[in-house]
Computed example of a mutant assay.
Amino acid sequence: MSDSRTYKVAGVRGLNMVREWPNDQTRYVAILIHGYGEHMGRYEHVADRLVRHGAAVYGVDHVGHGKSEGDRALVVDFEDVVTDVHALEERARADHPGVPVVAIGHSMGGMIAARYAQRYGTGLTALVLSGPVIGRWDLVSTLLSFDEIPDMPLDPAMLSRDPSVGAAAAADPLVWQGPFKRATLEAFAEMLTTIAKGGTFGALPTLWLHGEDDQLVPPGPSRDGIDAVRGSDLTERIYSGGRHEVFNETNKEEVLDDVTSFLDRALTVRNP
């Protein structure tokens, strides 16, 4: 695995933990954006593949996640998280001036990346959305209908057909195992509405990845959300039998091959 280093940076709502995978021969910068309740430490193998492909990789534990400050799994405004990611991009650009930047977001991170593309897409060379929460997520409206948010533990088997993935997540002390917080659900609902009204991605090359059997964030509602914001250059890969974490699926090498092939095309268009 590629070596990584961690350090704290100031975020909108406290200190955030950044994880960086350096590259002495950087062809592009990849900003990884993790999902709900998890942290950047779960992306070592993804970052390793990207480093071997020529990337310097950066990611931040969002507020309330991983080793960043804040109440656990509490996000009151996702616009603040987008702002934190942009500060990370500015740091990466200072480290690698003139190098193209791509954003890769999974699940909640896909939602954040979609909004990021609406706010800062002119500075991106490519966008990758993996199992994105976009369009409609029925889980949010269902949970918000309760006077008291029920504790509905995640079935680890929903993450991947590889049982070791769910077992590792369940045993990870930095992965949130508790119930959703109402303020976080309300922030999800607000951000989904904001994205739907926020305009398209224009000509930004976009890759949408999704597991066909994703029961946590079903591909159907996500497709509606993608269709509402897609620009003129969309590539989609729906993996037969795949569950929610396609980067951790039994065919993860195929998935990462698709990502690097897509990025090669996007980088070639930018630098023919």
Rank of each mutant, 00 (worst) to 15 (best):
K197M: 01
Y43D: 05
L234P: 00
M111S: 11
R223L: 04
R13T: 08
G202D: 06
D77V: 12
A168R: 13
G199V: 02
L159Y: 12
V18M: 13
K252G: 13
W137E: 01
D151K: 08
M40I: 04
Y36F: 14
D224T: 02
V259E: 13
K197P: 05
V165H: 10
D227I: 09
S261V: 14
A10V: 07
R5I: 08
E90G: 02
S145K: 13
G11M: 05
Q118D: 08
S141T: 12
Y36Q: 11
K197S: 00
A87H: 05
D213S: 14
D61H: 07
E212R: 03
D155Q: 14
D71V: 15
T142P: 06
V229P: 11
Q177S: 13
E249W: 03
L256H: 11
E254Q: 15
G178N: 02
D257R: 01
D172L: 12
A168W: 07
P219R: 06
A30C: 06
E148Q: 09
D227N: 07
E148T: 07
A170E: 11
I149L: 01
N271Y: 04
G211Y: 13
L144A: 07
V9K: 06
R182T: 10
G211E: 01
A203W: 12
F146K: 05
R243T: 09
I195F: 04
T250G: 01
H244Q: 14
N271Q: 01
G135L: 05
D3I: 04
H53M: 06
A73V: 15
R13G: 11
A170K: 07
T250W: 09
E38C: 00
V259M: 14
K181E: 05
E249C: 04
G131A: 15
R230G: 03
L143A: 08
S130C: 08
E245L: 06
F188A: 04
W208T: 06
T6Y: 11
D48P: 11
G178I: 12
S240G: 07
G135F: 02
D80C: 10
R182Q: 12
H65K: 14
K252F: 02
S130A: 12
D77E: 12
G54D: 09
R5V: 09
L88G: 10
G198A: 15
D224G: 06
E253Q: 14
V29E: 08
A113D: 05
S4E: 11
R243D: 09
H65T: 01
Y58I: 02
M17E: 15
K252V: 11
D3V: 07
T122G: 03
V246K: 12
R182K: 12
A56S: 05
G131C: 05
F262Q: 00
G225E: 12
Y58F: 14
G66C: 13
L267F: 01
F78L: 15
P153S: 15
L185E: 05
G220K: 15
L204Y: 08
I104V: 12
F146A: 05
V82A: 12
I149N: 02
K67M: 13
R72W: 01
G37Q: 14
D151E: 14
H62F: 08
A73Q: 15
G110P: 00
G121K: 10
M152E: 13
N23D: 04
E245K: 09
I31S: 00
T194M: 01
G70A: 11
F201Y: 12
V82D: 00
H210R: 06
